[in-house]
Design a protein around this nucleic acid. Structure first.
Lengths: 106, 106
DNA sequence: TTTTCATATGTATATTCTTTCATATAAAGT
DNA sequence: ACTTTATATGAAAGAATATACATATGAAAA
């Protein structure tokens, strides 16, 4: 890890620090989905999904592939899997609230 | 990974999505430091360091220990190490710009 | 070539974060 | 008790983000 990391790649984490994008990634870890499938599954507007897919794509957290009119998105399982595993491990061992990161329960 | 992750723990990543906090974590991965030592090393105001240490502490990304008047902070190496490793790996394999995450070079 | 379906983009607003400056607390020494 | 040093907290201004709605692009079918 060179010293520039903090300045250069904080956007890596910024990209992940959004409930919509995390929800998209969670879904795509299960299976590839089109934009509208994601929108339906998550109960969000299509434009919102598209807006949020863009940064994920730019950082190569997801891949996309044309299929007729549709665009099928899939997750970069290596990176996202490692990150989710790190979160899980941290939640288990270090989150006093059992993984809820001091947010109010709901 | 339960399905609630995206809603509940996006703050995990939010916490990391800031250059100051990442710089603090980088320093603390090398050795424990006091608030003023961090401020000096990073060339930032003490109050800014304190403000940014707070969320890191709340998520147990760092630990603290009183030592006289000082407060010595150290990193949760298990979690932060795993995350930095994931970033490094991603940068090497998936960042077209060689780890610069499509930010302008400088 | 028109229509339809799927996705992307533009823009404005509301919200959230970051930072700075000022001040408060807290601990140790005098 | 008072002073000094170390750290934390409060508040306000500015910057960055998220979201919603409208619209544009693009691809296939009719």
């Amino acid at each position: 890890m060179k010293k520039g990391l903090s300045e250069i790649c904080y956007k890596f984490f910024l990209n992940l620090s959004n409930p919509t994008r995390l929800a998209v990634l969670e879904q795509l870890m299960n299976q590839p989905l089109s934009v509208n499938e994601l929108a339906d599954t998550l109960g969000q507007e299509q434009s919102m999904i598209s807006h949020n897919l863009k940064p994920l794509l730019e950082c190569n957290f997801v891949y996309t592939e044309k299929q007729g009119k549709q665009r099928i998105y899939s997750a970069n399982k290596e990176t996202i899997g490692a990150l989710f595993k790190a979160v899980e491990n941290h939640a288990e061992k270090f989150c006093p609230t059992g993984g809820k990161c001091h947010l109010k329960d709901d």
